[in-house]
Design a protein around this nucleic acid. Structure first.
Lengths: 100, 100
DNA sequence: GTATCGTACAACCAAATGGTTGTAGATCAG
DNA sequence: CTGATCTACAACCATTTGGTTGTACGATAC
C-alpha cells in the first residue's frame, strides 16, 4: 500500500499512468514526452511497476508499458473503505440526531 | 494531488485517517497509540492537514483532529477517472473485436 | 502561584526520492 | 560488420522524509 500511494504521489507518474492506461507505449516513447532524461522516466516506470500500476513486456528491443488495472482497483478499494467508515459514522450521528 | 497521495503513502498516517474518520481524537490521544514520539505523530497529523485529509480544531488546551471527507473524495475521484479511461479503452477493444 | 499537560517548533540525523551523467548490452537498419 | 536505437544499471548529488531530542508557551489542575 505504501508503495502504491507513493507511486501515485508524483505528477509525472500519474501522467504516465493516464497515458499507458489509454494506450500502451514504449519507455522511450514516454521519455520523449517529458522534459527530463530517459533514465529519469525509466525510474518512474520502475516505481509504477513495483507498485503494480503498470506492467512491462519486452517486444523486440523495446519495452512496452501498459496500465495495470489491478493496482488501481486496490487503491480505489482502500479509499472506498474509508468512505464506508465515514458514512457509517455519519449514519450514527444522524441516528443520534434523530433520537434527540 | 502530490501532497494528497504522498500523505496516503504511510501506514501510520492511513491508520490515523481511519481512526479520526471513525471518531475525533486529540493529537496526544493519537500519539499514545503509536510507538513513536509525540512530535513524530504531530508531524504526521500536519502532513494530513496540509493534504486536506484531516482538520484540526483547538478545544481548551487540546487540538481535536477529525477526518476531512473532501480530501478523500478528491483522491477517489482521480482514481475513478483513471478507471473510466481504462473502461473506455476496454470498450474500444471490445468494439474492435466485435467488428472483426 | 506552581506544577503539569497538550502543543508548537527548531535543530539535527539517517535514509529515501527525483534528478543527473556515464557505461554497457541487445536489437535492428543499412 | 557498423552504426544507431532502446534499455538497464551504477554512481553521484540535492532535497525531502520520517524520525529523534530539546525548548518554550498557553491552558488546566491543585
Amino acid at each position: 500500500m505504501d508503495r502504491l500511494f507513493q507511486a501515485l504521489a508524483d505528477t509525472t507518474r500519474r501522467d504516465i499512468i493516464r497515458r499507458v492506461t489509454a494506450g500502451e507505449s514504449s519507455v522511450s516513447g514516454l521519455a520523449d514526452l517529458y522534459a527530463m532524461s530517459f533514465a529519469a522516466v525509466q525510474k518512474h516506470v520502475a516505481v509504477l511497476e513495483r507498485a503494480s500500476l503498470v506492467t512491462k513486456e519486452k517486444r523486440g528491443r523495446e519495452q512496452i508499458v501498459r496500465g495495470d488495472h489491478e493496482g488501481l482497483q486496490k487503491a480505489r478499494r482502500l479509499l472506498d473503505e474509508y468512505e464506508a467508515i465515514w458514512r457509517q459514522r455519519a449514519g450514527r450521528i444522524a441516528d443520534i440526531l434523530a433520537e434527540g
